[in-house]
Design a binder for these strands. Structure first.
Lengths: 204, 204
DNA sequence: GGAGAACTTGACCGATCGGTCAATTGGTGG
DNA sequence: CCACCAATTGACCGATCGGTCAAGTTCTCC
């Protein structure tokens, strides 16, 4: 039920099971159309199991969103932290986020839905703001060192986010394209968009 | 009920009323949480009224989506058809779509949700494809006449769509920014993104 | 082996859902 | 004034929703 409960390893496993199954159902059928009964039936357990691990369907969904966002941000930071040049760093972060999206196809749909529900939207916006802020910082640094348009860095950062989002959704998830090629396209378009020179080729 | 029914002027009015009210509720509370009972209660009419004009909640929503999309496309074409230069034409279309979004704040949320429901997603994707195709055509023409990166025009068109979508959502709808300034930012970023020269200033 | 915590069961609850329909009312043309 | 159709009413339907809970089972540790 409540926030923290001592879980045995078996309990942890069950909890993870629920999260995994619910995530898949939410993504494929939608949040509202997926009932708690669907989830427990799909897992072959009684309804009480669900409420032993989660307060409500709503808190489960929030937790899914939250952990997905922190996971993405962590990976993005890990991939770009060591890169010195701000433009290259931005490119690395972008490539990593495309790679992450390729590994978590379902989550984009969840994010989309969450944005349309007033209970979940603030969560998504906050997570998004964190990512955007990282990008904006890189752009600001690039503007100071090299030369870049004097555009609003935050606005440019959002634009970049938008490009990554839609190209990922359309070409990666819907058309099953090659993640590397898509990442290239995202980086090319965005670096040009902020007025940076043609992208330094991927480092690997 | 069914598809076509002779409607008196009074009937047309009622139908429009339902569409307007339902659109607002769907946008502010979400599709699923808005019940047919909510809609008819909000309008102060009996439940039968709803089913006199619409087959189901689902068809009503589909109609809202469809007419919104055709309206946007029509306006975009009207605003850009007369512009000869492909790059300028692209800019005009982008500006018009930002203006349209400013007049229809609610609809973005509806589109977002629709994308997450397998019943509605194809509708949105088709409408989106039409808009993207217009942009891709302009890009292709520009690439032939002037010089532009040899990037995939369709991919670039989707990227442009993504930029317009997110900047509109964040700066126009959420932060209530100035539509013209936002349109400028969209155009600047996107034209640079496709490798076109700094934008020709707005014509007005 | 026993006590207590972790875990599981599934019947049950009140509320609400989308949708139906027989009966009624309003308006209009003949 | 009547006939007819558009429009409206609201009680009603079966299904399903998120959530509860008393009871039972399994695990762990002393």
């Amino acid at each position: 039920m409540s926030d923290e409960r001592r879980l045995t390893p078996r309990g942890q496993e069950r909890r993870d099971q629920i999260i995994a199954f619910a995530t898949a159902r939410f993504a494929s059928h939608g949040y509202h159309p997926t009932s708690v009964a669907d989830i427990v039936d799909g897992l072959g357990v009684g309804k009480g199991v669900f409420y032993w691990y989660f307060d409500s369907k709503e808190t489960l969904f929030s937790e899914i969103l939250r952990s997905a966002q922190t996971d993405l941000r962590r990976r993005q930071l890990a991939a770009s932290a060591s890169v010195e040049d701000p433009v290259a760093r931005l490119g690395a972060a972008l490539r990593e986020s495309v790679a992450w999206s390729a590994e978590h196809r379902e989550l984009a749909t969840l994010f989309d839905f969450a944005l349309t529900d007033e209970r979940f939207a603030p969560l998504i916006q906050a997570g998004r703001a964190a990512l955007v802020d990282d990008a904006a910082t890189a752009i600001r640094r690039a503007a100071r060192t090299g030369r870049l348009g004097a555009d609003d860095p935050e606005l440019a950062a959002y634009a970049i986010f938008g490009v990554a989002t839609i190209l990922t959704a359309e070409f990666l998830h819907r058309r099953d394209g090659d993640p590397d090629a898509i990442a290239d396209a995202v980086v090319t378009f965005c670096l040009r968009g902020i007025g940076a020179a043609t992208p330094p080729r991927p480092v690997e």
